[in-house]
Amino acid sequence: MKRPVRLELGQKLVLTANRLLDGRTVWWREDGTWDLRIGQAVLLDADVAETALSRAVEEAQREGVVGVYDTAVLPVVPPEPVTVREKIRAHGPTVHPEFAVETAQ
């Protein structure tokens, strides 16, 4: 079982997954749909993130995503993931500028 994300002061949570059809990284929006841009992700406090995560996992097949989990971000615009791994997922591989992902809202 995945360990709960430990939030530091000022951080929020977002939900992320990969799209079933093509594997692309996606972020959970407030209306329960998924978007390629992290700028569209809804920012969650820890106390509501668990419920949101359960809902997103339950709806994953219907929404066409796989591997749903939560990750910490800094609540800037667009949100900036805390870990290198999630930054790369949000922005694309660092070694091909032409593969950069649009992150804005």
Binding site: N18, D22, G23, R24, T25, Q61, V66, G67, R85, I88, R89, G92, P93, F99
Partner: peptide, 22 residues
């Protein structure tokens, strides 16, 4: 098929799910 059921089948055919794509 759920992802848990499908994963070993796709892996036996060389298909991984990585950070940005398959």
């Amino acid at each position: 098929l759920s992802e848990d059921e499908f994963k070993p089948l796709r892996l036996m055919n060389g298909l991984y799910l990585q950070l940005h794509a398959y």
